[in-house]
Amino acid sequence: MKNTFVRKISTALVTLGLVAGPALADGQVNILTWEGYADASFIKQFETESGCKVSATYVGSNDDFAPKLAAGGNVYDIITPSLDTTYTMVDAGFVEPLDTSKITEWNNIYEKFRKSAGINKDGVTYGMPYAWGAIAFMYRVDKFPTPPTSIADLWNEQYKGKVSLWDDKSAIYVAARLEGNTNIYELNDAQIEQAKQKLIAQKPLIRKYWATAGELVDLYVAGEVWISNTWAGYQSAQIKAKGIDVKEFIPKENAEGWLDSWMIVKDTPNKDCVYKFLNMQSSELGQCGVANVNGYSAANPVAAKKCMKPEQYDALHQDDPAYLDSLMLWRNLGERLEAYTNAWNAVKAAN
């Protein structure tokens, strides 16, 4: 049964008349995705070889997918939500089953990912795993004589006005771990309230809640932020390229792990280009494309090994299942999704 949050989304879309299939042009792929997933460094080659034009719109949070799909008037062919959001897309009727027989590299994708409950429901597969990594933490090396090792450093009064946190419901996960609640995807009402109050107490220390990768990069480069959480690999590389020495770390309270998967928007007429796109993204071109641009790990280790140097392959934990298992991999929140989302919104609204 759909959870209450999903039912509200579906009802709203029906009321607005936005659940009809998209009317898109042939020979193109319109994607709703994360920064770097449609980078020109590999997309241009795909467009030349496939004859399919790629148009990308970017999100800053998994909470953006549902409203953007609605507000955009169904102009998207394919999306890349993370594991904690995939069921919402399925239950709201936004996406359709994936024909894995049309994806040449399907069986080379990590089995752990292919069989993940996040992309499989009632015996049907809805997503193609693409990239994965950690929601690590990051700091400016010149501002920390003693390297931080705990989430608690983001609550340290010494860094007032120099702290940033991702504008996402996963902030509840961060605060919950700091409070000693490690069952971060199954928090009860009291635990969610505890995390919410912890985040409200932190607000005077926050310079800004960052919404996009580029925004956090700019905050570090301008000297406005010294410590934050981060999409491991991507933002730190951009900051270092601008001459600012930053370092990522996994705190003693652990870090979340994420997996992004491509999902096909229901009734898209651009199936031919969509499957060409999926085949590119699961191949060497797409897998090393995202690794080189974003610094993320690839879902297809076979393709990754063919296009990565050994040192890059090792650095991205491509042959290290224990690293992935050590992370708190995001999960669908089910009926609890609305409670987490409401708590985070309450934090942002608090004075």
Rank of each mutant, 00 (worst) to 15 (best):
T149V: 06
D314K: 15
E186H: 15
M280E: 06
N279F: 00
S116C: 08
S10A: 11
K240T: 15
Q235P: 01
T230S: 14
G233N: 00
Y130P: 04
T57C: 07
D26F: 03
D319N: 15
S164G: 10
F144H: 04
S236H: 10
D91M: 08
L259I: 09
N62V: 09
P204Y: 10
A304T: 05
P301R: 03
K208M: 12
D319E: 08
G123F: 07
F5N: 11
D84P: 06
Y296C: 06
F144C: 04
A136M: 03
E157W: 09
Q45G: 10
K8S: 11
N30L: 01
I244V: 15
A346I: 09
V302T: 14
V174I: 14
W226H: 13
I9M: 07
P147E: 09
S236P: 12
V302E: 07
N351Q: 13
V217M: 13
I151V: 06
W231L: 13
K102D: 02
I206L: 15
E186M: 12
I119A: 11
N3Y: 03
M1Q: 13
R177E: 10
E105T: 07
I135W: 12
G17E: 05
M308N: 09
A66W: 12
Q197R: 14
Q158K: 15
K247P: 01
L337P: 04
I184D: 03
K162S: 07
G73F: 07
N107Q: 04
A40E: 14
G51R: 02
E186C: 12
W262Q: 03
Y209D: 15
L327E: 10
K112M: 08
I227L: 15
Q287K: 00
T88F: 08
Y185V: 11
F144Q: 05
A117T: 14
K266A: 04
N279R: 00
T86W: 05
T146P: 06
Q197M: 11
M89C: 11
P269F: 01
V54R: 01
E215D: 14
S326W: 02
A70D: 10
I200L: 04
N294L: 06
D267S: 03
V302H: 04
K252F: 05
S164I: 06
D272G: 04
N120V: 02
N270L: 00
T80R: 09
K309R: 13
E179C: 12
A175L: 02
N270P: 01
L32W: 01
V19H: 11
W132R: 05
